[in-house]
Design a protein around this nucleic acid. Structure first.
Length: 501
RNA sequence: GGCGGCGUAGCUCAGUUGGCAGAGCACUCGGCUCAUAAUCGAGGAGUCGUCGGUUCGAGUCCGACCGCCGCUACCA
């Protein structure tokens, strides 16, 4: 059985979940669901990143312990994912014992292999970034990202000999040409590597909220390196060797372009230093722009998933982000665009197809759905559509996969116009056309189920199928002719009521 | 400053190795009335950022420029 291990970044808890976080998570969920349909053994994980100075200070401000603060914040992400029907198999929090074990074991291996040395670091530090800046980075003496004062800090800490890995990284990139996609991001990572890598500080001695360094317990690991290791933790690193061998290195990371440097340069190097293989695949996506601008706290243009779910439902939400935002480049998000897509694809095309078919089946077939024609004119298209959808998911292009499925929806609507079964007397010809339409509904429900977690099951139920759609297995379930006929078809209310503003 | 990307129909975006400009939405006209003012058909629509070059032929290749963005650097 094939295996599929897919991850989202673990989100830093000092922020409310917004549609940018959810975009990565929903895409990963769609991929996980597609692979489950294929019968793959799937490990899909998301979680939260909970250490660091910023968390410690937030806790102090609220009179809580850092762990209590992290519990509150982490729960917000879990709620958001529950709301969006995210089907993660595990949820990793960096404060868990298993993660501390993994971080300590992995970094100890790096240390034992001679890639870590003690040093002194001093500079201007931005607490919000958890990072150092040079004078020239600052804007008006403030952090360029957060526009807040920086602090001069000096600390004894440990450095990772990143500079020693430039050649091996370049070699890795040439051996694994598809490891980082899209190609422009791969080139960007190579640019960073070829531009010269400096050793990086991987510990902090001025902070106690983190994973203690095993060979020097007064230090904790810098939150970024702690965080990256979560992907190994989940696979069993440091706690379950058998499990780790099973899932590593065939891991597929989904990330936003803002953290490319960490995932495509530092993380592979750290893996090499620890003596494990770098991740097999990293897919990088762009930003969701709101009126041409990146979403940010300071721009006050962050959008909460719950607000959109309230207006479009979970299916409407997931469909929009998977279908309308192509994975890779930046994409423009607009409420109006979302509403237009919802009405066109979900209400008018798919929802209305179900409504008209079930109405005519009630009138002409006594409510019993006929079987499709084996030699239906729609059959070849259905085959093409399945191939296109499978290829699209394979290259992490959910929008192409869904676009393909809707070609079949449009063809079914057109075929009905052509045959006009509502004008014809009951009989074999009417049965043939309606059977074909029901078969399209069955197939589209399967192909769209990674996006439409609820409507897909409802379509199956209404056309009389009793098997849970989650148990459907591709490619068989996508082949023409699977609808048996002779099933009671329910005439229900609108599957996707039109959106009006 | 260096490296890289982007700029295509009103909107959101596709355009593989150069070969008659595409999709969806929106819009216009027509058909249909089973259906959620739905659906089907037809149609208009673009100096492919600007200028120049290579070529029989350039959205695509080359150069310059304008605008937006990303990464990176501060060295004379």
């Amino acid at each position: 059985m094939a295996r599929f291990y897919v991850t989202t970044p673990i989100y830093y808890v000092n922020d409310a979940p917004h549609i940018g976080h959810a975009y990565t998570t929903v895409t990963a969920d769609g991929l996980a669901r597609w692979h489950r349909l294929l019968g793959d053994e799937v490990l899909f994980v998301t979680g939260t990143d909970e250490h660091g100075l910023k968390m410690k200070r937030a806790a102090q401000a609220n009179g809580l312990s850092p762990k209590e603060q992290a519990d509150v914040y982490s729960a917000r992400y879990e709620e958001a994912w529950a709301l969006l029907d995210i089907s993660n198999d595990d949820y990793i929090r960096t404060t868990e014992p298993r993660h501390h074990k993994a971080v300590r074991a992995l970094m100890q291996a790096v240390y034992d292999n001679g890639w870590i040395y003690p040093g002194t670091y001093s500079g201007l530090y931005c607490v919000d970034c958890e990072g150092y800046y040079t004078e020239t980075d600052l804007i008006d003496g403030l952090c360029p990202v957060h526009r807040r004062p920086v602090e001069f800090m000096t600390e004894e800490n440990y450095f990772f000999r990143l500079s020693a890995f430039a050649d091996r990284l370049v070699e890795w990139y040439s051996d694994q040409p598809g490891a980082v996609t899209p190609e422009s991001r791969r080139n960007e990572a190579l640019g960073i590597i070829k531009g010269g890598l400096q050793d990086i500080s991987v510990t902090r001695s001025t902070l106690d909220w983190g994973v203690p360094v095993p060979w020097d317990e007064d230090h904790v690991f810098y939150v970024w390196y702690d965080a990256l290791i979560n992907y190994a933790t989940v696979a069993g690193y440091g706690t379950d060797d058998g499990r780790f061998k099973k899932w590593w290195p065939a891991v597929h990371h989904l990330i936003g372009k803002d953290i490319l440097r960490f995932h495509c340069v530092y993380w592979p190097a750290l893996c090499m230093a620890a003596g494990i293989e770098p991740p097999r695949r990293v897919s990088v996506h762009g930003y969701l722009l709101v009126r041409g601008e990146k979403m940010s706290k300071t721009a006050f243009n962050q959008i909460a998933p719950a607000d959109l779910v309230a207006d479009f439902g979970v299916d409407g939400y997931r469909y929009h982000f998977l279908r309308d935002q192509s994975f890779g480049p930046d994409g423009e998000f607009s409420y109006e665009g979302m509403a237009a897509r919802y009405n066109a694809d979900l209400a008018n095309n798919l929802g209305n197809l179900l409504a008209r078919v079930s109405a005519v089946v009630a009138q002409k077939c006594g409510g019993i759905g006929p079987a499709p024609r084996p030699e239906s004119p729609l059959a070849p298209l259905a085959s093409d559509v399945y191939d296109a959808a499978a290829a699209a998911w394979e290259k992490v292009a959910p929008s192409d996969a869904l676009e393909a499925a809707w070609r079949l929806v449009r063809a079914a609507n057109a075929a009905l116009e052509e045959a006009e079964p509502w004008r014809a007397p009951p009989g074999p010809e009417v049965d043939a056309v309606l059977g074909d339409a029901l078969e399209v509904l069955r197939i589209v429900a399967v192909l769209a189920s990674p996006a439409l977690t609820r409507a897909s099951a409802e379509i199956w139920r209404r056309i009389g199928l009793t098997q849970p759609i989650a148990e459907a297995r591709l490619p068989d379930a996508g082949r023409w002719g699977g609808y048996p006929g002779g099933l009671a078809v329910e005439r229900g209310g609108p599957l996707f009521p039109r959106h009006r503003d």
